[in-house]
């Protein structure tokens, strides 16, 4: 009898589980917007033409493992939310060839391409499809790439960064930064205007290599004045070397109570006061809208800074600097140090 009860328990549980599991794919497939990444992928390999008369969009994005995969999935979800026609998400694996992708783009009758990541950009370039290309989720790129497509960088807009700086450390009047011209020359042009708008003085130092950058940071901290100055770390593999420059800047910033803020989330975890990092869903929506515009109007080209950002702060550093952060008021998305 008892055994029979247990067996019935198993059966009932399995029935419940089957209901749960069977209902889940239905949820994914029924999802009107984000959904479907699963649904999109199915569609991407299905040899049928889109039902919609609106312009279809093909998104080329790298096939990459978690947790990075979620970044692209969120961007794709955002793209789909803002695209009027159907969106075909095409993963780019190691064996994906240009011809396969081109066939797929034609089969889907796509009118515009969105390229994500280095691989997406490379593939879009190699297709020679003649379709307008909007690119995003790229860190660095060559001038050539930026000249031929509209490229939404992952480097946060300096206007947004400086506005946050004024909120978090309102006494700051001067921003000091070191950059490599090849990587961040374009960013510095924008930064100068952004600083002016916030009433900040931007002092830029160009560094050709890591050694020069380290020397410049030494000089910066020798002259830096507590309360007046802040140091901005840009996304720059030459000027902000992770192993030597970054620890030095963070240590000096701490010892001299100079706020160090950054364009990279990774730096906040190490001790920078705050950083802006990509709001992937919003970035996707922006790319989706841009792609729609590119179909109907001439495709604006060039490199654009990241406008869709979230805020991360390091409360340990803030406390040290004597800054009392109200994380709710600031709309902080991530707080470091994590437990």
């Amino acid at each position: 009898m008892r055994r029979a009860d247990l067996k019935r328990g198993w059966q009932a549980s399995l029935r419940w589980l089957l209901m749960v599991v069977l209902s889940q794919p239905a949820l994914a497939l029924a999802a009107p917007a984000g959904g479907a990444l699963l649904a999109q992928n199915d569609d991407a390999t299905r040899p049928s033409r889109p039902a919609s008369s609106e312009a279809g969009t093909t998104v080329l994005y790298p096939d990459i493992g978690e947790p990075y995969r979620s970044i692209f999935s969120q961007i794709v979800e955002g793209i789909q939310q803002r695209s009027r026609g159907r969106v075909f998400a095409q993963k780019l694996g190691a064996s994906t060839t240009s011809q396969e992708v081109l066939d797929e783009v034609r089969r889907n009758d796509s009118k515009v391409l969105i390229a994500l990541g280095r691989n997406g950009l490379r593939m879009a370039d190699s297709l020679n499809s003649g379709l307008p290309v909007v690119a995003g989720a790229v860190l660095h790129t060559s001038e050539n790439d930026a000249a031929t497509v509209q490229l939404h960088s992952l480097a946060p807009s300096p206007a947004l960064l400086f506005a946050r700086l004024k909120q978090i450390a309102p006494a700051t009047r001067r921003v000091l930064t070191v950059f490599n011209a090849a990587q961040n020359g374009w960013m510095m042009k924008l930064a100068a205007d952004a600083a002016r708008q916030q009433g900040l003085e931007l002092v830029r130092y160009e560094a050709a290599d890591a050694k020069a950058a380290a020397r410049t940071f030494q000089e910066i901290f020798a002259d830096a004045e507590r309360g007046r100055d802040a140091v901005w770390l840009v996304q720059d593999s030459i000027a902000v070397d992770d192993t030597v420059v970054l620890p030095y800047v963070l240590e000096e910033g701490w010892n001299r109570s100079i706020p160090v803020f950054s364009s990279s989330l990774a730096h906040v975890r190490r001790g920078a006061l705050f950083a802006l990092y990509p709001d992937n869903l919003e970035l996707g929506r922006r790319l989706g809208s841009a792609a729609q515009q590119a179909v109907t109007a001439a495709n604006a080209r060039g490199l654009l800074p990241l406008q869709d950002t979230l805020l991360a702060v390091n409360v340990r550093s803030a406390n040290h600097l004597g800054l009392r952060l109200n994380t709710s008021e600031l709309g902080v998305s991530l707080v470091f140090p994590t437990p």
């Binding site: 978690e66 979620s70 996304q235 990279s264 990774a266 730096h267 992937n280 991530l334």
Partner: peptide
């Protein structure tokens, strides 16, 4: 590229 922005995988998990 992504690790330059996010740092290690743990931070990516947290951020996403």
């Amino acid at each position: 590229d992504l690790s330059q922005i996010y740092g290690d995988k743990t931070t990516v998990s947290v951020a996403t």
